[in-house]
């Protein structure tokens, strides 16, 4: 079957979740990946949205983090203060799934501003839940499209802590959680080097070249040896994702497709 780079990205991200995970879901690309995992290999995956929905099983992807579908299909829905205190800060989430506008080589994220904070060129939405998701969840997966303006040498603003600006700050702060362990893009899978914590390409998606990845990464990206090739999407993965996106488009009217 033919597939798009975005479909490959969502499918590769979905595969990283296990049936035993409890996952705090960001909106957009993370939400598509998490629900694809639940509808394929991880039927017992517990999805938590910051609006309060716990163990939700939406039949269409929510447009917002608090669509009614999330509450209607949840095991329970709690208040937002309870969500952030008992569930997230309480250490009851194994994986946080995040995106952002910029990521650096150590998995730090910016979703605050492009340019100076006091005189921004582009004012982005801000931290939302990400700042504490990144330090309270057992580990963090990041999903983002590969682009030189997204994969940057230096963040314009550090919204969400990965391994720290030089890769050591997270450890120095004494955080007990692992931080970012996976970065999935539309070109490749990157994982942190066990020692330096620098995100290194461990798998190229089928048909993608090292040159493409270099051209779309602003830091001098390192490739692991041996370098893997990401398994092709299966028919089940593609059909499930396309069904989910079709149901979502129908439910939201003019909503943008997430393929």
């Amino acid at each position: 079957m033919n597939y798009s780079a975005n479909e490959m990205m969502t499918i590769a991200a979905a595969r990283a979740l296990s049936d035993r995970d409890v996952c705090f879901v960001g909106i957009g690309l993370p939400s598509a990946a998490c629900n694809l995992a639940r509808l394929t290999h991880a039927p017992n995956l517990v999805l938590i949205y910051e609006s309060g929905a716990i163990a939700t099983r939406p039949s269409v992807l929510p447009l917002s983090i608090g669509d009614g579908e999330l509450c209607r299909t949840a095991l329970t829905t709690v208040s937002v203060p309870e969500m952030f205190r008992y569930w997230l800060q309480g250490g009851r989430v194994t994986v946080g799934f995040l995106g952002g506008a910029q990521v650096d080589r150590f998995g730090n994220l910016n979703s605050t501003v492009i340019g100076e904070y006091s005189r921004p060129k582009v004012r982005l939405p801000g931290a939302g839940g990400a700042t504490e998701i990144a330090t309270s969840c057992g580990r963090i997966f990041i999903v983002m499209r590969h682009h030189p303006r997204a994969m940057v040498r230096k963040l314009d603003f550090l919204t969400t802590l990965g391994h720290g600006p030089t890769g050591v700050e997270r450890r120095q702060l004494g955080l007990q959680t692992a931080g970012p362990t996976l970065l999935v893009t539309d070109l490749a899978i990157l994982e942190p080097d066990p020692v330096t914590k620098e995100f290194t390409v461990t798998s190229l998606h089928p048909g993608v070249t090292r040159e493409q990845v270099r051209a779309n990464t602003s830091w001098d990206v390192i490739f692991a040896e041996p370098l893997q090739e990401t398994a092709l999407p299966t028919a089940l993965e593609l059909e499930t994702l396309r069904d989910l996106n079709a149901r979502t488009a129908e439910a939201h009217g003019a909503a943008p497709a997430l393929t």
Binding site: E132, T135, L161, L175
Partner: peptide, 23 residues
């Protein structure tokens, strides 16, 4: 969320585990 809870509780401030290492 913690600042609202503190307000509802009549507290002057809220404390929580957060904001480590960020801008």
């Amino acid at each position: 969320a913690n600042a609202y809870s503190a307000g509802a509780s009549g507290m002057p401030c809220a404390f929580f585990r957060g904001y480590l290492g960020v801008g």
